[in-house]
Amino acid sequence: MLSLRSVTKRYGALTALDGVSLDIARGEFFGLLGPNGAGKSTLMALAAGLRSPDAGTLTLDGGVVTPADPRTRTSLGLVPQSIALYEELSADQNLRIFGALYGLRGAQLRRRIDEALAAVQLTDRRRDPVKTFSGGMQRRLNLVAALLHQPKLLLCDEPTVGVDPQSRNAIFDYLTALNRAGLTIIYSTHYMEEATRLCSRIGIIDHGRIPALGTLDELLTRLPFEEEISFPATPETAPLAALLGADGTLVSADGRHRFQPRADFRLSAFYTRAEALGLPPRLFTAARPTLEAVFLHLTGRNLRE
């Protein structure tokens, strides 16, 4: 449905997207997982035709996406990363404006607005100014505002930032239902839990490149180890941490070390060393790796740096 071929986008000296190629199939729930500054929003802007690439092409259903041509826009919806609403106006007024811009009128527009507000539980607040809404309510409205015209492709750019768990779940359920009903979704996030829970396929994005792409299982099997071991970063574990560098990757964050062993490294050797240093086994937790471990393995960095 959407294809990127060697797409490059620069802002002055900075290369925000670096030769990205990507194919999104109809009906996919595609996750774009990467930290801040990875190039997620830039990719969304190019896909929505808001900016043009410096090199490469983007096509939507075979037609080239360019800022100059507004007509192909009716088939896609964009949920901007920021809350792009007129906050002095009511939820109703906002939706009427955005619906009208897509050519919706009269009874049809009213029906779509009613449905949209009901879907995100905002019906009883529809006449209130958006600025009186909680962050979660604003996010929900920000989402449905992109759906009134019933696009075929939805671009969701970090739609849950700053949202309470309840609103987050409401958004997840709504998007899942839409996807089941046939909507193609590209969903960018820096939360691996979201990508894990929602997406049928995930692209890892970092520094404007997509180094890995696939289903969750495909990505996890790319890892050369089956378990990673974490333990607290304390003075007594410091000698152990110093020993591990040669045998795999060691990352430290939030007062814990995470050790991802090299393929040929045997975990039994790890425990032998720990024992030799007098560290009790209860300090160590072995776990199945997550997407975060994939990101770490691919980039040598944590997702949330």
Partner: peptide, 15 residues
């Protein structure tokens, strides 16, 4: 511009 409204409007059939 800063609230992203231009993005939303320009993603619609608006020039």
């Amino acid at each position: 511009k800063s609230s992203g409204l231009f993005q939303r409007l320009l993603a619609a059939p608006v020039t």
